[in-house]
Design a protein around this nucleic acid. Sequence first.
DNA 1: CCTTTACATGCAAACGATTGAAGCTTCAAC
DNA 2: GTTGAAGCTTCAATCGTTTGCATGTAAAGG
Lengths: 341, 341
Amino acid sequence: MSVTIVDIAKQAGVSPSTVSRVISGHPKISPATVRKVKSIMEELNYHPNIMAKSLVSKVTNTIGILLPRPAEELFLNLFFSEMIRGVVTQAARSSYDLLMATGTTEREEVEAITRLVRGRRIDGVILLYSRQADPVISFLKEEKFPFVLIGRNDEHPDILTVDNNNVQAAFDVTRHLIAQGHTRVGFVSGPPTLTVSRDRLEGYKLAMQQENLSVNPEWIVEGDFLQESGYRAMSYIMNLPERPTALVVMDDLVAFGVLGGLTELGYKVPQDLCLAAFNNTPMSELTSPPISSVDIGIYQLGYTASQTLLRAVKGETVHQNRVLIPHRFFPRESSLHTIHK
Amino acid sequence: MSVTIVDIAKQAGVSPSTVSRVISGHPKISPATVRKVKSIMEELNYHPNIMAKSLVSKVTNTIGILLPRPAEELFLNLFFSEMIRGVVTQAARSSYDLLMATGTTEREEVEAITRLVRGRRIDGVILLYSRQADPVISFLKEEKFPFVLIGRNDEHPDILTVDNNNVQAAFDVTRHLIAQGHTRVGFVSGPPTLTVSRDRLEGYKLAMQQENLSVNPEWIVEGDFLQESGYRAMSYIMNLPERPTALVVMDDLVAFGVLGGLTELGYKVPQDLCLAAFNNTPMSELTSPPISSVDIGIYQLGYTASQTLLRAVKGETVHQNRVLIPHRFFPRESSLHTIHK
DNA sequence: CCTTTACATGCAAACGATTGAAGCTTCAAC
DNA sequence: GTTGAAGCTTCAATCGTTTGCATGTAAAGG
């Protein structure tokens, strides 16, 4: 049916082993043989059977990537493709393929990963996001299977991670607002179970503290990653007796909601309220006013995660188990309004 | 190292073949044996080696998906994750895995696919988008390898495709504008090499023709899928001696640009110009005014493509080789302004 | 001219599953 | 008591590679 190494061997008048060695670039094959075999491979359009190959070599040249479940994907949707593009680009550069795993429940996720790992289908895994008490992480650690987490997980300080310095990023953003004269700065958070939410909240608090500004707990609103939550947050915040003049918002999409809410209530951004958000999605430039946002290097996160994983897979020692991708703040109109006391 | 079928067999006191048959649910294995083997599999946490399995069975339970190249991805970025989610969900439902292939050039793309196909790594392929003169399509046809194209390709009317009825969709949108009294309707197109651009342009023209409205060629602007092109289009269109009062725009993102350009020029939407676009991305609800847009069922496209492919892979006869996913128009503020003559 | 050495290749055993055919029980039928 | 069939299980070949070891041959050294 399909052309195999044996066919090549026959055609070339050598043994299959020789052909195999030609393919793998074994040093002591005569140049003449190499040439002959290669030309025949070309001619018959031979491509090695990957299954057979990895059956004996125990190496699949494939990394798995666990997709977020629909329920959790909403907020990841925006990053998702960029991240994967980073992963796939780097993986392709090292001739690795990418296998996607998923599941609609946590149980299914674990099952999917288990099947791939124990079925020797992949050499390593990238987890696209971190959540607390993740059974997948526990499983992978137990199996001593190479994996990289994009994000951070405090329960497992020893695993390989690629992350942003979210504390610093939030700190920077908050300082940017304070520098313009704001003293009452609020924070619209994401789900508190996510590390990223907690980190950014912490960075915000640190900045406030460093500037000797008191944080009114009423200014901290918990949202999710959908615009509605920003919308809702506004009807709450703008009705506070002492309301903030600036807001740090966890995500562009939520900032959109915030913007919508404010417009509806008749407030103007940045005159009545300054906004700065995270993730610098293409949207943030397109709103009116454009939203200041922190670019967290999504593509880089994916790319680096893949790179780190491949090092681990190949057994190279990874010098640092936590890599931080630099972020960059893009101030735009939504936060450019100086307060004069 | 890893627990194999032989280990199970030893533990259970049966032969490997028996274990294999238990796994595959062979009818004539005694219930007692089944029970015993299964419990031991459970106990040892056995998972079959997928490579070995597919080496002999010639089936990989994996479908490939060719990612668009970075250069082309820009416009697909938005659909991308939704589509993949559709594919992966449906595939997972049939216990199929997803392998991603990519390449930075057309040549690399073909190579990647060739390696997977001839290396017997996958059972079928989904092509995420259609372009003319695609060497990948030719290759797959030659190899008689199962694949599904999301989109359409006129050079190959016989292949399996999943697509929208873009002609009809554009027709509907144009009629919606005309119904509000517009007689001068323009069109901001995508790259003319893409089938989708041509289809929508055709639908637009048909609607105009049907209503006995003349199409001024000046009203048809060619853009790409980036907001800048919408921006540029406006400085051109609004300077025309006879300018349109409504526009059909190929994509939400471009409509954003259009919106931005108009705002900058001091025009108001929908009062000065009505807009209707395609793809109904989450953005379109968030702009001011919100943009009317056609939902093309991106998730459905992916889901159905996967379903169709799996049928083909399993050798089931596919009743129709071109599946159309229904679209739905969401009128929003950007196009809701009636013209009174 | 015979041994040593190096180099190039072939042999054959894996890798972990599947599967057609053969084999062994057990029991019913004649 | 032999024969047959049915039911369950094992045997052994196979899938397409890789790889340690054996082998053959030619050049180099004594």
